[in-house]
Design a binder for these strands. Structure first.
Lengths: 196, 196
DNA sequence: CGACACATGTAACACGTTACATGATTTG
DNA sequence: CAAATCATGTAACGTGTTACATGTGTCG
């Protein structure tokens, strides 16, 4: 849902057309998150279908300008103040990788952890270098780089914590005892488990 | 791509059938990440189509058992040691929200930041409580909770850093000067920009 | 003219979610 | 028997990616 609302935000300043919005999105995100042009057009079509934007139908191969509607502005205002997804945390590919690796025969989880740790360290060094060389006044880029560096740092801390837990829990592939434990409060919040 | 490979990992221990894999996936991830059953079946179909798993065709309405193929095992081994996506960092909805909010007229970015900060603090408290009440021996759950808490902590640190940057950069919606700066080295790595 | 950038699209596919449909087996 | 649970699927939709098609305007 990010792109959809980001386009709304871009239109809330002034009417714009497709390619222009692609360029603006990338500029605003410090040129770090490329946005596919095709997605801009299809997303704009859906936004128009839903009444959140309207187009000046310049049919003749020219630029087709979109503007935000009052409904779109309301939707945008709501989105800006709504925290994303209160339910389960997003599925984290790296966490899944480590968790399932624990059960795969012939795989050393600790090695998997170390491989990824090394890679994350390299990534942090690369982003740090980019941050150092960045134009000082570029607030957008600085914010994006901050976010990525904080995130990568948390990944490293998790990998180290996981390594510690595994070390403490016994060095081998300990077969989980499959105890029938009480389910986590939370989780299972209406998602699936619908009484049908 | 997480689910696809996670299913491969589950099958690498022993042949299994659909619902069983849903349950195992959820158990292995500490019951925190619900997995849709339908997705299991469609993903298994795609895996079979790609030759990574094979099924014992128990056609008679009974359980349909899948097993991993040598190609599947190879694919799994590769995946476990391959760090996810070396190119741009994943698009972060919260970061996008703050970045685009800077340009939306009538919106106070600082307030947006504070709203989300409060929410993240609440989330951390909730997960911390769950962690405290969790069964001590549950390694999977502990790892998932660790990951989420580290992640949320990094989000808070980013929000605070962003607040600081905004404060320093001038309290208002500073219109970006649209300077034509040199593009970030990195980014634009073959994605889009194909010479056609 | 030919090449290139600008601008708008469409098609095909992967993945994910929700909802629905259909049998088989168990159990009150 | 009836209801619930187990088990397998399908349909529709949203989002995202890659690739292709088409037209226009500019410039060497």
């Amino acid at each position: 849902m990010s792109v959809r609302h980001a386009l709304l935000a871009l239109l809330s300043e002034a009417p714009k057309y497709g390619l222009q919005m692609r360029d603006e999105f990338e500029r605003r995100t410090g040129e770090v998150w490329p946005l596919n042009v095709g997605q801009v057009y299809t997303t704009l079509q859906r936004l128009e279908r839903d009444g959140l934007v309207a187009s000046d139908g310049e049919g003749e191969g020219a630029q087709k300008s979109y503007r935000i509607t009052p409904e779109g502005a309301a939707e945008l205002a709501t989105w800006l103040r709504t925290p994303p997804d209160l339910s389960s945390p997003p599925r984290d590919e790296l966490v899944i990788k480590v968790l399932v690796a624990m059960g795969v025969p012939g795989v050393d989880v600790r090695e998997v952890i170390q491989v990824h740790r090394r890679h994350v360290v390299e990534l942090m060094q690369e982003w740090t270098r980019i941050k150092r060389d960045a134009v000082p006044g570029d607030l957008s880029l600085a914010l994006v780089l901050d976010a990525e560096l904080f995130r990568l740092d948390s990944v490293i801390r998790w990998l180290d914590a996981a390594e510690g837990r595994l070390r403490r829990a016994g060095a081998t592939n300990a077969p989980r005892p499959a105890t029938s434990k009480p389910p986590v409060e939370r989780a299972r919040r209406g998602r699936e488990r619908v009484t049908r």
